[in-house]
Structures are given as structure tokens and as C-alpha cells.
């Protein structure tokens, strides 16, 4: 039997009140698994940013988290509009979030940069009209 545990989360789209549920749940579980606090923090922040992105831009999506004794692996998949220029999207402060969302304090253009900053491995693939997949890993 493998040493991993796999957890799956459905992130509902356009519902800000529920954004953060998945990262909150994973935090609780990682704490109970005795994962080092610093790694929990990195996972929580990067996953929360990912969740918010799914809510704002992609009408929701799925997150699959695999936890092993060495690392936490996060796969975030959505079937949203996709990102035309990933390089531009990765720049701190760049945002396409609509005004009403910015009014809520979101959309400061730090989502993707923070996900990259707080994960030890980060990759993103996106196709306009098809969706976006982000892969992150946090090592202990």
C-alpha cells in the first residue's frame, strides 16, 4: 500500500462565501498529520490563492491534493476561459479581475505570483477557451 493520501475538492464558482473552504480543510488535516507548520502555511496560502482564482475567473474547478511523507502535491484544474498571456499573468500586480471583485479586496494581481512564491515547484498550463491547470508542490 502506498504512503500517500489523496483528497479531492470541488470549488464552486462565483461564490465568494465558500472560497477558502478547501484550503481551510486541508490545513486542519495537515495539522493532524503532523506536517511541519511552515509547510502547512505554504500550502494554505498557495491553495487559497488558487481557490480564489477559480472563483473569480473560472466558474469553479477541481483541486486534487496528494500528501506523502515528503511533500504535498496540488493539482488545480478548471474549465474556465484560460489565460492568453501567461507571462503577463505571472507579473505581480497584473489583474484582469472585474471592478466589482476588486471592490471586495480581491484581484490585486498577486494570486499567481503568490502561488509561485509559496510553492517549491510550480507549473501552469492554459489554453484560451479550454481551461487552466496549475501544478504546485510544497516539500517538507
Amino acid at each position: 500500500m502506498s504512503d500517500a493520501i489523496v483528497l479531492k475538492y470541488d470549488v464552486p464558482g462565483d461564490d465568494f462565501t465558500r472560497a477558502g473552504e478547501a484550503s481551510s480543510d486541508i490545513k486542519q488535516k495537515l495539522r493532524k498529520m503532523g506536517i511541519p507548520p511552515e509547510a502547512i502555511r505554504k500550502v494554505a496560502i498557495s491553495m487559497y490563492e488558487g481557490e480564489i482564482n477559480m472563483v473569480i475567473h473560472a466558474h469553479g474547478g477541481q483541486i486534487t491534493v496528494e500528501i506523502t511523507p515528503e511533500d504535498v502535491d496540488m493539482l488545480l484544474e478548471d474549465h474556465g476561459p484560460g489565460i492568453a498571456d501567461i507571462e503577463q499573468a505571472m507579473q505581480a500586480g497584473f489583474s484582469t479581475a472585474p471592478e466589482d471583485v476588486r471592490g471586495l479586496g480581491f484581484g490585486a494581481g498577486m494570486g499567481l505570483p503568490n502561488m509561485k512564491k509559496y510553492s517549491d515547484e510550480f507549473s501552469i498550463e492554459s489554453e484560451v477557451g479550454v481551461g487552466t491547470t496549475v501544478h504546485m508542490k510544497v516539500r517538507f
Binding site: 504512503d3 495539522r31 493532524k32 498529520m33 503532523g34 506536517i35 500528501i67 506523502t68 511523507p69 517538507f140
Partner: peptide, 18 residues
């Protein structure tokens, strides 16, 4: 930090328990 909620004594054991 007092990790009182931890399930097992090692990461491997805790993951299996979770």
C-alpha cells in the same frame, strides 16, 4: 507549539491514520 492534535507519531503513520 504543542502539536496535540497529531494523529500518529511519524508522518507516515499519521498519513495512514488519516
Amino acid at each position: 507549539y504543542e502539536p496535540v492534535f497529531k494523529l500518529g507519531s511519524t508522518l507516515k503513520e499519521s498519513i495512514a491514520m488519516m
